[in-house]
Amino acid sequence: MKDNHIAENEVATKNIKIAARDVQVYYGDTHAIKDVNVEIEDKTVTAFIGPSGCGKSTFLRCINRMNDTIDICRVVGDIRIDGEDIYDRKVDPVQLRAKVGMVFQKPNPFPKSIYDNVAYGPRIHGLARNKADLDDIVERALRRGAIWNEVKDRLDAPGTGLSGGQQQRLCIARAVATEPEVLLMDEPCSALDPIATAQVEELIDELRQNYSVVIVTHSMQQAARVSQKTAFFHLGNLVEFGDTDKIFTTPEDPRTESYITGRIG
């Protein structure tokens, strides 16, 4: 359990990155998220677990305001990143999303070359001074996405031609290329086979050195493997939040225990 060892070290230098207070989300008349309070630490992997439809993905999408693209969605409450309210009028959701990257459930590479996929974010945010700079950024991102060796000879090939696992790592590389501070992952391994999953999990562990990672997962083994903190959602409520090994060994709430032992879900 080396992960837990590191986690204990970092608890000492606890540093709150994202703080949510009394968050409510409504889809039309449906009350999807109820009174969620959570504090997510920097340079930590936080896992959101819970049965389907419990609101974990919805809450994840609140953190970078992706829910803005859904017309009927309404968010109430207070979410702060580094103390700044992200639902404040002054905040531009476009800039927020550059700071809070996101990886989706299904790999969604753009219909462009591998290079252009990764260079997309740096280009629109003007992160590179020149072509050589951009090349460096792309290479670094692909290396961090653990896919550089597989694609370095065919950067001009379309990103859609890669296998599912490679596509997902490409999407992760694309997300880290914009140097976000927080990386949100919405079931990043649900479409992948066990080998690709292992690669992505390894990658998540490395990403923790630089970012705060929030991952939604249906696999409790995955949550136990990759995360230091775990939040259990049920029917729109945040039932329990704490250190991962505590949640999985001695949960306080009976609902959490029922879920992780497979009695509800």
């Binding site: 970078n64 992706m66 693209t69 476009v94 800039q95 927020l96 999303r97 550059a98 700071k99 990257g101 996101m102 990886v103 989706f104 299904k106 969604n108 590479p109 753009f110 219909p111 462009k112 997309y120 974010g121 629109i124 945010h125 999407c171 694309r174 997300a175 914009t178």
Partner: peptide, 24 residues
């Protein structure tokens, strides 16, 4: 999903349309 991917990287609506949606 293609649009979400672009928005998720901090692209604006017109950037998304010009560089992702229209090429696709």
């Amino acid at each position: 999903a293609m649009r979400d991917g672009s928005y998720g990287l901090g692209a604006t609506k017109s950037e998304t349309i010009r560089q992702v949606v229209l090429p696709a």
